[in-house]
Design a protein around this nucleic acid. Structure first.
Length: 179
DNA sequence: TCAGTGATTAGG
DNA sequence: CTAATCACTGAG
């Protein structure tokens, strides 16, 4: 019997209370958690989350919600545990997990998973698209996160691709990554 | 460094 | 309606 560790590692699905906290707890704690996604064949694939970024409320100039509540950002205003996906640069879907309390728009961008580095690459691989917008990871039958007990060391750094934000927000060390 | 790509948004 | 923007990637 062979198999990569990722075929073997599984754990308990994260519940609502994990997500209904400040994104500055949620984003770093997602590192080492297991992202489970059902593929076209109905198989559940598991990946270790290796990189995330925190977007924290309407005061954070790098957060989409800082530009107001719109159809696109609506789900960020919901209770944590839902999925926020949006399209950028004409090609890529970005996968985010909503965090925090209702009406406090926060989300964690999933920037990397085992085997795939880069937010656009992983959504392409997992076939994440608009159909996942608003999906609830506490009850979904095709996407959720599990805790398998992994607690890898991680580093922090400034978030990527947010040059439009003011210096204060651009420099926040709200990117979390292993290795 | 920089083009490509199209949804989203603000502004007439 | 128009035009600007953009939480990226890959080529060079």
């Amino acid at each position: 019997m062979t198999g990569s560790p990722i075929d073997i590692i599984s754990g308990e699905r994260l519940k609502r209370d994990f997500y209904v906290r400040d994104v500055l707890f949620v984003a770093p704690e997602l590192i080492g958690k297991i992202l489970v996604v059902r593929n076209d064949s109905g198989l559940f694939c598991r990946y270790i989350i290796t990189e995330t970024e925190a977007y924290r409320g309407d005061g954070d100039e790098a957060c989409h919600a800082s530009r107001g509540r719109t159809a696109r950002t609506e789900v960020m205003y919901h209770e944590g545990g839902k999925i926020y996906v949006y399209f950028v640069y004409g090609m890529y879907w970005m996968l985010n997990f909503v965090a925090g309390e209702r009406d406090n728009p926060q989300a964690a961008l999933i920037r990397g998973i085992s085997g795939f580095k880069g937010p656009g690459k992983l959504t392409r691989e997992l076939k994440i698209d608009k159909s996942y917008y608003g999906e609830d990871m506490i009850t979904s039958e095709r996407i959720w996160v599990e805790d398998a007990g992994l607690r890898p060391d991680f580093k922090t750094g400034p978030r990527i691709g947010i040059n439009y934000a003011g210096e204060v927000w651009k420099n926040k060390p709200w990117r979390f990554f292993t290795g």
